[in-house]
Design a protein around this nucleic acid. Structure first.
Lengths: 241, 241
DNA sequence: GAGTGGTCTAGACCACCCT
DNA sequence: GGGTGGTCTAGACCACTCT
């Protein structure tokens, strides 16, 4: 890392961000841990306090760290509820975010098929963990979904006694995979006989099909999920900015 | 505006942001206009250059201004293509954003009904402009939509010879309404006989229903739109962050 | 070369949290 | 009261754009 931004090199504050992010990724800084204050970090890294601040501001926006005035800067702790809601954008008629439960969860491991390799960016002969489940609201099933995850990243996942309601904080807590962003493709489909059965519908009922790929902060795809949702008095919410 | 952040007062950079935003809103700074440089603004407003920079950084993120190193800071010019794509999140199978055209556009003015008043936050006896149209891709109609706008904000809109393909840059160019954000509710519905006719489908075909309210930067609702979309080989894309 | 925004530094004071 | 992040200032140098 050089002091002056020589040709093509990223600015100092971005380099500092990367250094700190690496410490979180490798576990040198663990979730919940208090970071040194700005002046200590600045001295250690050989930059000014303002540059450290700028790096920490970036990490705050990326939800990697949490800053509390008067207390300090902490590595963010993945919170199950927060993660459940962050990617679960279904709201009821009154505008309240819906809290789903999971039932009939089944997990297995197998060889990835062509489509799975494609969506997850895996090589040939890669193994995947597949999870199927139904999600309910007030006891009524309204989503049937399948999750596909690279088995080498999540060893032993299929053998766990229980798959939690949200897998994203599990990824971060137990497997050290930092979730960064996701990409969804939404379409409308007619319920087939399978979905009709799972969700107690007439075949042909219109459903929302959400095809989601989630990427780790380093860009690797870590989950492909397809959710078929029957939305009555509920909707999928998108904020346009 | 006070120099020191006294109890409860927003920070200086936020106050400066508001001052500059007001100049854009009132037209004192017109779209495309070059702003004074950071030092001139700082001198004029009685703050330091760093504080002005921070305000301008905020306005840049909000897409109110555009900064070009070596050239200066300009008030953003609403660009039809940019605005069309910004809120039109439909992509084809190859991942390319779809460019829609409009046909059969009809506009009229009338008294707002209860639902319209509700969604647009209008008082009783308010008038609205209603626009219906179909949108096509490669000449094939795939969306039927209705737009509802407060008539007092958009005087003469219904009488225009042509309603453009995207109304959002029109709002900003011709009516001085700065578009800030939108909120969409997505559900799946079965095509009724009307939609089936408009989009050449069999009744009962699953459609995506997008119910959108768009708000100006000052928080007023400026459009309520319902789009019924038939997505074959296309999808509605959502980025999760 | 003149002018602009982008980066980086150094230092001050304030508001807030904890003990 | 001592330590932390949040704000604000002043000034330097760099990279980029235009003429």
């Amino acid at each position: 890392m050089s002091k002056r931004g020589r040709a093509g090199e990223p600015p100092l504050y971005a380099q500092i961000r990367d250094v700190l992010l690496d410490r979180v990724r490798t576990g040198a800084l663990a979730p919940g841990q208090l970071l040194p204050n700005e002046f200590e970090l600045a001295a250690e890294l050989g930059v000014s306090q303002g540059t450290v601040r700028r790096a920490l501001d970036t990490l705050t926006r990326e939800r990697i760290v949490v800053r509390r005035q008067g207390s300090g800067t902490f590595v963010a702790v993945p919170d199950p509820d927060e993660w459940l809601f962050r990617y679960f954008n279904i709201y009821d008629a009154a505008g309240r975010q819906v809290t789903p439960d999971s039932i009939d969860t089944l997990a297995s491991t197998g060889l990835a098929n062509k489509r799975e390799c494609e969506r997850l960016g895996l090589g040939l002969n890669a193994r995947v963990v597949r999870v199927t489940r139904r999600r309910t609201h007030d006891g009524v099933p309204f989503i049937a979904e399948t999750l596909v995850l690279p088995a080498d990243l999540f060893a032993g996942l299929a053998e766990r006694a229980e798959i939690p309601n949200t897998v994203y904080d599990l990824m971060q807590r137990d497997y050290g995979v930092l979730v960064g962003r996701g990409d969804e493709r939404v379409t409308a489909v007619a319920a087939g006989s399978l979905e009709a059965d799972l969700l107690s519908l007439s075949p042909g009922t219109p459903l929302i099909r959400i095809d989601r790929v989630v990427y780790a902060i380093d860009g690797r795809a870590v989950e492909w999920r397809v959710s078929l949702c029957h939305l009555t008095e509920k909707h999928y919410r998108v904020r346009l900015t």
